[in-house]
Design a binder for these strands. Structure first.
Lengths: 249, 249
DNA sequence: GAACGTCGTTCGACATTAACGAACAAAATG
DNA sequence: CATTTTGTTCGTTAATGTCGAACGACGTTC
């Protein structure tokens, strides 16, 4: 692991959809490094277009190169191509939002969203991430990780997002076991109050789970009267997408 | 400029929408560096999620972190928010595709596309870049760069994309001057045979040109009978978007 | 309007450490 | 089964990234 490279990447990781601008001093505090060290790293990132300086504030934003590369992220492109038509179909049949997410570092990162109505905006925009232990897609992805990875996740703090978020390791471990046997996961107001989700795993030709698809709506609806149909359709859509990706079920 | 960081970023820059996977050996040849050096850099990039290893091929792809950061590229988010409604309006009025692009390193990078019909797919997907000297948006962006930057661009080879691409420095310099005085640029089959575009500059509160918007269609249509209306509407849309961004014209 | 604080930037000395090539193992290829 | 190419490891060396202090440029405040 190369020190300076790791630090440069850590600088980039400070940015998010919420954190748009950071100055040299901000970064030197965040990384706990001398300003001169950060300066050198930032200037290198700027020269390659990974950071761009805001003329008025003097602070740095993410550069265009980051955007270009982000749009070249082939995994998302391929998953989107495979999932979009079936996700659209699922969404319009139920009149609810559909999301597709992948796993990374304890988070479910959303790479596709299809919203049926603007009034129920669950995921602000593609690219954001939610904790794996509270969301339905997160639980699906978590449940199919290697055992060692699951243990690592369970070892960390299961922080609550709502009153219903599962914060007990034993309970979550049992829930993940249920996800594997049932073939789908639920989120009963564990991430957002009033919102419920049902999610199922998407597999590729290797048989491994590469993503998860979910249907979201009011918890009382989706986990109530329409639950049998919703869970069936989500699992079915996930299966169809998996087959598009080359999975031989 | 820090050597190792620069090299790591260069590795990332090897990837594009066309180049999805690269192995250690591929990269060591591309960068003309020993394999062991590349190996260290790649492992660092992988540890931070900027690269991900494909289990079957053993080669490396862009990692999810790149996607997350790309979706956090605030410049594009803000421009998209400001431009989308007006671009949509422009597109549906003319029944043609509309694009918005920004400038970086001699290229026009597309950050928004609104297609009216699927049969006329000019820009494959957002995030791709086209040469600045052949496209209408490119000429607009080029024309409003600092003089030193323009000279630098003109000093390089103006490679042709079609028979009509401007490859002469003097001619292009004159064309850029016309773009500044007229307030818009055209692309008369200079990028793609049969395709014509009209583009105008988008400015922010500082008055500087931050992006360009274009209307594309069959060259004989858009640069023929509908040219007066098309150029007027594109310039008008660009002006409205500029005002949304805080420009006081 | 002057003094202060804060910002990004430059510089040089020091010691860390990134870079390299060779040798290794592992897998694909014929 | 031989051969080539892959990714990986290791140890040495000199290159170079790191750091703190000092600088100049803004913006703010009293």
């Amino acid at each position: 692991m190369i020190n300076s490279v790791d630090r440069a990447l850590t600088i980039l990781c400070q940015y998010s959809q919420r954190v748009k601008e950071l100055g040299i001093t901000d970064l030197s505090q965040l990384l706990d490094l001398p300003k001169s060290t950060v300066h050198g790293l930032v200037k290198t990132l700027e020269a390659r277009g990974f950071l761009a300086r805001n003329a008025e504030s003097g602070k740095y934003r993410l550069g265009l190169k980051v955007y270009e590369l982000g749009m070249a992220y082939s995994t998302a492109i391929e998953l989107q191509a495979a999932a979009r038509p079936l996700a659209q179909e699922l969404s319009s049949k139920h009149g609810k939002s559909v999301h597709v997410a992948v796993y990374a570092g304890g988070m479910a990162v959303f790479i596709l969203k299809i919203e049926h109505r603007e009034d129920l905006m669950v995921v602000p925009r593609v690219g954001v991430s939610f904790p794996a232990h509270s969301t339905a897609v997160g639980k699906v992805l978590l449940a199919h990780l290697p055992a060692a990875e699951i243990d690592k996740y369970l070892a960390e703090d299961l922080y609550p997002l709502t009153r219903r978020t599962i914060t007990d390791k034993k309970v979550l471990a049992g829930e993940l076991e249920r996800v594997r046997t049932r073939g789908f996961a639920t989120d009963n107001e564990e991430t957002l109050n009033g919102i419920g989700c049902v999610a199922a795993p998407i597999r590729d030709q290797s048989g491994g789970v590469v993503a998860a698809i979910s249907l979201s709506g009011l918890a009382e609806e989706i986990l109530g009267a329409s639950f049998p149909e919703a869970s069936r359709d989500v699992v079915e859509a996930a299966g169809k997408i998996s087959r598009v990706l080359g999975f031989m079920g």
